Computed example of a mutant assay.
Amino acid sequence: MRSLRIFLIACGIWYLCNLVLLWPQVYAGTLPLIYPGLDLGQGKPVFGLLLDAWLIVGIQLAAIGVVALWGARQPWKYIALVPVIVLTEAVGAAWDIYSLLCSGEAAWFVITTLAAHGVIAIGAWYAWSASHRDKTQQG
């Protein structure tokens, strides 16, 4: 269960960090780097709406992060979080690919985020597999 506990703690912390990274005052400064050359409407009400929408994503990720941290106390009881995390990462990866192809998102940013999604998915697979092996060995 150690690997599952570590995975849940790592994801919990990462998802809470995403809330900080998507906080409007932080994210507003990074959006021009992520979408270079696009008029994002900075200074207009629509830009505030964009930042608010991303804040909601951050809050949703943080909610998963809080549950993951809580679940790390009893990892086997909360193993169902692993598929939730994998699906969350799959949706994020699909969004990143869409954003690269259709929305002008910077390739360096897409590659970075796809790598993060991949690391989390591989970690999930390892934690899931190791936990089931541990549970089988325990009887």
Score class of each variant (00 low, 15 high):
66 V>M: 06
57 V>T: 15
99 S>T: 05
5 R>A: 11
19 L>C: 08
105 E>R: 14
96 D>W: 01
11 C>A: 12
42 Q>S: 12
70 W>V: 12
137 Q>L: 14
83 P>Q: 04
69 L>F: 00
98 Y>P: 03
55 L>M: 14
96 D>Y: 01
134 D>E: 13
106 A>E: 04
139 G>S: 03
4 L>F: 11
138 Q>V: 08
57 V>H: 12
109 F>C: 01
39 D>Q: 05
50 L>P: 02
68 A>K: 04
57 V>P: 06
62 A>S: 05
99 S>I: 06
84 V>I: 09
33 L>H: 11
103 S>L: 12
48 G>L: 10
72 A>P: 07
102 C>M: 12
7 F>Y: 14
79 I>R: 15
61 L>A: 09
93 A>Y: 02
45 P>T: 10
28 A>I: 02
46 V>F: 03
101 L>D: 02
15 Y>L: 14
118 G>D: 01
44 K>P: 01
38 L>P: 02
77 K>E: 07
10 A>N: 02
115 A>C: 11
110 V>E: 07
31 L>V: 13
86 V>Q: 04
111 I>V: 15
96 D>T: 01
88 T>K: 01
133 R>M: 04
67 V>E: 00
13 I>S: 07
23 W>D: 00
42 Q>R: 15
50 L>H: 07
85 I>H: 04
70 W>F: 10
71 G>D: 03
46 V>E: 15
136 T>P: 00
76 W>D: 05
132 H>C: 04
6 I>G: 03
60 Q>Y: 07
48 G>N: 15
2 R>T: 15
1 M>I: 06
43 G>K: 14
137 Q>A: 15
97 I>V: 15
71 G>R: 02
133 R>W: 09
35 Y>A: 05
40 L>K: 12
58 G>S: 09
49 L>S: 11
47 F>M: 10
45 P>N: 14
2 R>F: 14
52 D>A: 15
81 L>N: 01
63 A>R: 00
117 H>L: 03
112 T>I: 02
34 I>T: 10
127 A>F: 02
133 R>V: 15
42 Q>V: 08
61 L>E: 11
49 L>Y: 12
63 A>F: 08
51 L>V: 10
2 R>N: 13
32 P>L: 07
128 W>K: 01
124 A>F: 07
104 G>Q: 08
54 W>P: 00
87 L>E: 08
112 T>V: 05
4 L>W: 10
36 P>M: 05
75 P>E: 03
92 G>C: 07
134 D>Y: 10
18 N>C: 13
47 F>W: 11
9 I>P: 03
131 S>K: 00
81 L>P: 04
80 A>E: 08
37 G>A: 05
136 T>D: 10
19 L>P: 02
42 Q>K: 11
76 W>P: 00
87 L>F: 14
50 L>C: 06
83 P>T: 04
75 P>A: 08
33 L>V: 02
111 I>T: 11
123 G>S: 04
82 V>H: 05
93 A>T: 01
122 I>P: 01
17 C>M: 11
118 G>W: 03
28 A>L: 02
83 P>F: 04
132 H>R: 15
122 I>N: 00
22 L>W: 11
16 L>C: 08
107 A>D: 01
45 P>M: 13
117 H>W: 08
114 L>E: 13
126 Y>T: 09
52 D>Y: 12
